[in-house]
Write a protein that binds this DNA or RNA. Sequence first.
DNA 1: TGGTTTTATGAATCTTTTA
DNA 2: CTAAAAGATTCATAAAACC
Lengths: 361, 361
Amino acid sequence: MTATGSDPMRIVHGECVAEMAKLPDKSVDLIFADPPYNLQLGGGLRRPEGSEVDAVDDEWDRFDSFAAYDEFSRSWLGEARRILKDTGSLWVIGSYHNIFRVGATLQDLGYWILNDIIWRKTNPMPNFKGTRFTNAHETLIWCAKSEQARYRFNYHAMKALNDDLQMRSDWSIPLCTGAEREKLNGRKAHPTQKPEELLYRVLLACSEPGDLVLDPFLGSGTTGAVAKRLGRRFMGIEREETYIGVARSRIERARQVELDALEISRGRRAQPRVPFGALLETGLIRPGTPLWDARRRFEARVRADGSILHGKEAGSIHKIGAQVQNAPSCNGWTFWHMEEAGSLMPLDALRQRYRDQQQTG
Amino acid sequence: MTATGSDPMRIVHGECVAEMAKLPDKSVDLIFADPPYNLQLGGGLRRPEGSEVDAVDDEWDRFDSFAAYDEFSRSWLGEARRILKDTGSLWVIGSYHNIFRVGATLQDLGYWILNDIIWRKTNPMPNFKGTRFTNAHETLIWCAKSEQARYRFNYHAMKALNDDLQMRSDWSIPLCTGAEREKLNGRKAHPTQKPEELLYRVLLACSEPGDLVLDPFLGSGTTGAVAKRLGRRFMGIEREETYIGVARSRIERARQVELDALEISRGRRAQPRVPFGALLETGLIRPGTPLWDARRRFEARVRADGSILHGKEAGSIHKIGAQVQNAPSCNGWTFWHMEEAGSLMPLDALRQRYRDQQQTG
DNA sequence: TGGTTTTATGAATCTTTTA
DNA sequence: CTAAAAGATTCATAAAACC
């Protein structure tokens, strides 16, 4: 049976390069790949309360060096390019550990990058040790087979999916948790299962019903499940037998549905939250500015990092506002005021000014 | 005059590699770089031997220009690494055209990536032809000099700037427009002027007042203007004479905020270490005092040497705290409490009292 | 049954100082 | 140098447990 044979949902147990080598030239419409990230984690990481983080320490994610990882990337990306139709495109997802190397390798092989897409996680794991910024996103690279290639892009479908606004390169999508997360003996079946919402967008943007979609690192089978929902043909390659079983039963359970399935995740039009610090960064308020409450009973001063100082106590506008009133909580935006043209203006007015700026630029 | 000389705001007209070569080893605290990435335009790009890279129009040229760009990256990133202090860090900003190559080169040179940061543009230019997703972000890479290097990161200041939530790796910031945009004869003075909000965050996170900040591709001078506002020393290097003039007048106009407003929030790590025994020596706590955890599940007694006794086990507040919870570690300062006025007060409050005494007394 | 509190957990390159 | 001790550190969400 070939990839273009009678089984529209094919799962293959094997090495991705060897299995791709069996496919004819220019036979695949879309490739989505989630290769190992080369995380190389050290010891166990503990949360502040003492519990241990269940990290990725699998054998398949270990490489001896950057050179070894690059060689691995070249081999699977090279074979992928051969079997990709001229109208097809390739997506790869990764993090800062590997994505820069993958991107450079892509370019070296002649792929033409169309966009880099940011999966902005709405609920990422925090940085428990306070040593870095919360690693709150992953990066996807979308590329065509070459600079000249005429690739498929369903522009209007993407625009419709985004309330008739052109779809941007940053996508806010939650982690895969809850009922969607595949379980095996009550534990997560795969350490890095991707949310279906992410794949839904990719497949809807870059393929048609009946197209052949390939995932060379199948894992828990998200790509296959979404391909089936959207009426695409599919081929998935996976090395680990355990994951083959997980993916097979998952894709079996998936049902082709109407395109309204994503409706729920769209309505994100709330007023964006503004941290007080943003007003300092933009110069709407300056470090050193005195703040008062409406009746000028309390005074505090703004510091460069957005905390405010009252006596010897420093903290957020909310925390210090609550403290001076001896109240359990306080809305600093309405409590604190700054002087403007001789009268007091609540910080909330400044916040509105900031939001206006953000919109108009 | 050296970089550490008398002029705190130094602007140099020249090639960045040649000018960096004049600086001593380990002399710079923070480097922010916005290198050219116009692979197609040739103007910013020269091969190592000096010839100019032609426009890209066939496959051979493309490989040639990628190689030339990588060579260019290696040369300036290598020199930057030499002059960077062991506690310093480097930021580079770019887009999908160049950032993957820069990131791979960074790693090859031994830099250690700490985060990739997404500048999410609130008002990006749309994709007019409807051929791709709106390119709505740029990527910054933040890295330390090596895996082992202990870099500066003002974690608590970043947290304060974000309303007491850990700062994430995606930053929503508008494009630089309006009054902030530098003009020359009524037209924009520089094609890619970065918003000050972006640099404010970078400098506040990774430097201290008085630190030396270097920008090897000065452009319109945003890094210099923010460095001056925040009381950092600065050196900027720029090849184009026109931009030198723009940046010089801009930095001249910038005003430093008051010194005491530059104070930022510090964590407990920044405060002097207090041995528990010191509280006994000063009489803030007495031998024999009973200690409890917050829920009064465990009790221990203070001994004269600063160890505590729980049952038959004696040890430090940390060791015994870990032992009773059956945890791998424990912060005894926050775990143990003593009774005061009928309620429980954490030892941490007592430690603060001790520190206040040391300051005033 | 319903509302509140507690617990579990997610691709993580996750400490610093002293002996 | 290594080993041990001190001690600093978390956000959003869902499920489970508890009133």
